[in-house]
Design a protein around this nucleic acid. Structure first.
Lengths: 199, 199
DNA sequence: AGTACATGAATGACTATTCATTCATGTAAT
DNA sequence: ATTACATGAATGAATAGTCATTCATGTACT
């Protein structure tokens, strides 16, 4: 029998259960069952239910964040940077099909712990977008009338909402590459300074 | 003393409390307190906690849906239609500053009841977007390479995410009109067929 | 024979919902 | 105009069920 790290086993069980049921409706016993451990075992590895959720963020989203930052640091062209951002996010969501739902569901749970966490760590992740847009504006290739703080929200909202498509039976025929291209070309054309200006 | 309908009073108290605390963390007694009624009174007007949440959707979102559909039926130009869609949504969210958060938070709560409701009624609302895009493609003014079902998600995701800006202290200086313009010009330029094509 | 890890039944805190009771208002008989 | 009675909306304390968390006990490895 392959012995898998219990911590990891619990994390991935919890991701699945949270995605299916939502944080509050998910029972510790559901997670324990899914991970094939006893309820009490979970408390050897985590302090409490919130801690499991936070760990999912720390570990899973932290990975995306870190990898994206490394890739971006080697790039200067804003549009290529956005391309990296989108594809990293969507590839990660595709790889772990429950993660997207956990982010969607849990990021919005109104809870002091999560709110704080979100404010600090997560907004750093979305601020990457507004920074890229500002860079493009400074280089004179992006529309100066775009408000980076509004655009970053629009952009991340689009990404977030789109990151669930593969779980919907009807729309499974779209690939990561297709979705990445769509979002990117939609947004890039929207943000570029050029001859096709609206208004 | 102005006597307000208790049903309405409870709905708006619940919207506020749900927005602040989230559905699961909100206590019936919080809602009762906010509405200045007794806990038990709530059960005269609603069957249970979920029923309150569903009623918020039915009543508040139903209103936006209905009004948007009427306005759209009098319009033929896809871009003007999108303009109507965005401004109706954002105006409603601005008017009731808690509603946006309730939608953001609660639409994602994984719960059979909500999920079903969302599938049926709510996706009809977002499908308006993909219908408009198809219309624009048929008229030859929108890019034929855009996938309407992906774009609708991107578009609604952007709207949804952006609809909370006025509640964030730092960014309160943006007006509804500004946000509407930003989203719209970003998206319209992104979707239009023209000389500024990406790729 | 000691250490570390794992178990799951028992505990206790929390809160949605219920329901016996109160109270404000309306009706009508005198 | 006053009294008696009826109604049902409103109340909030009590109930009852649900889990997160604990811990006494077990297991296995060194």
């Amino acid at each position: 029998m392959v012995v898998v790290n219990k911590h990891t086993k619990i994390i991935s069980a919890a991701t699945k259960v949270f995605a299916k049921k939502g944080f509050f409706t998910a029972r510790i016993s559901d997670i324990a069952k899914e991970a094939k451990v006893a309820d009490g075992t979970i408390y050897i590895y985590f302090n409490n239910k919130y801690d499991i959720l936070l760990s999912i963020f720390e570990e899973e989203i932290g990975k995306i964040f870190a990898k994206t930052e490394i890739l971006l640091s080697e790039e200067q062209d804003p549009s290529r940077m956005l391309q990296i951002y989108v594809s990293q996010y969507l590839q990660a969501m595709k790889k772990n099909k429950y993660l997207g739902e956990v982010i969607q569901i849990e990021l919005r749970q109104t809870n002091k712990v999560i709110r704080n966490y979100r404010k600090n760590k997560f907004s750093a992740y979305t601020n990457i977008i507004s920074d890229i847009i500002r860079k493009g504006q400074d280089q004179g290739i992006y529309r100066p009338d775009i408000l980076p703080d509004v655009a970053k929200r629009a952009f991340f909202g689009a990404l977030d909402e789109v990151s669930g498509v593969w779980n919907i039976s009807l729309e499974t025929h779209y690939s990561v590459e297709e979705i990445t291209d769509q979002i990117l070309s939609l947004f890039l054309q929207g943000v570029l300074l050029g001859t096709n200006q609206v208004k």
